[in-house]
Amino acid sequence: MSPISNLDIDRIFKNLDKNNSGQITIAELQNLLHGIGIQTTSEELEKLVGRSSLDYVGFLFFYEAIAEPRDADDEEDLRKAFEVFDVDGDGFISCEELKMVLTKMGLWEKKSGDDCRDMIHVYDKNLDGLLDFEEFKDMMMMSVPSAVVDRKRN
């Protein structure tokens, strides 16, 4: 996933909510997860989510729950997600790789390359223009509560 800003989360939710109902179904959420290499059944996902669909706030809490690793298994899941974005397997996520995967997932909306570089720059601690696994992990562990507050105001 790209650095998940409030705007990015909003864009992802809107892309998933194909019928503009304000809800995303388990099937829509499952398609997103499968697109990034996380295989789960709809039954497992519904059990995890606790309902058959999510509104925007529920989606934010779901994201927060899966984005923050809590143990070694979660770290391994993050490693697998990193490998989805590290298309060439060199141990880094470039702007081109990020854009390619987000496009494949239907989450890249004709942005310029500069936008992609700006997204990477937010988490690029050593300023090499790439994300290594630790930088990716920091990005994925980013907290979401401010997005909940911002969305409720709008």
Rank of each mutant, 00 (worst) to 15 (best):
E97N: 01
Q39R: 12
D90Y: 01
G22W: 07
D55M: 06
S52L: 13
E96F: 13
N31Y: 01
L33V: 07
I66W: 02
G58D: 07
D73L: 13
L78A: 13
L60M: 07
I38R: 04
D90G: 09
S94G: 11
V57K: 02
I38M: 14
G58L: 03
L98G: 08
V87G: 02
Q39Y: 11
D73H: 11
G35W: 01
S52N: 15
E46H: 04
L54F: 06
F82G: 03
H34E: 14
E68T: 06
Q39I: 13
S53P: 09
A67P: 05
E76V: 13
S94Y: 04
L78P: 10
D86S: 09
G91D: 06
V57L: 13
K47Y: 06
E76W: 02
L98N: 01
D74I: 05
P69T: 00
L45H: 02
D90H: 03
D90W: 05
T41S: 15
G89H: 02
V84T: 15
E68I: 13
D88G: 13
Q30L: 15
I26F: 10
S53C: 11
L29T: 02
Y63H: 00
Q23C: 12
R51F: 08
T41I: 12
I36W: 07
Y56T: 00
F85R: 00
R79P: 12
I38Q: 10
S94P: 11
F59A: 03
L48W: 02
V87E: 09
D88Y: 07
L54A: 05
I24S: 01
G35N: 07
A27C: 13
E97Q: 07
D88L: 11
S53N: 06
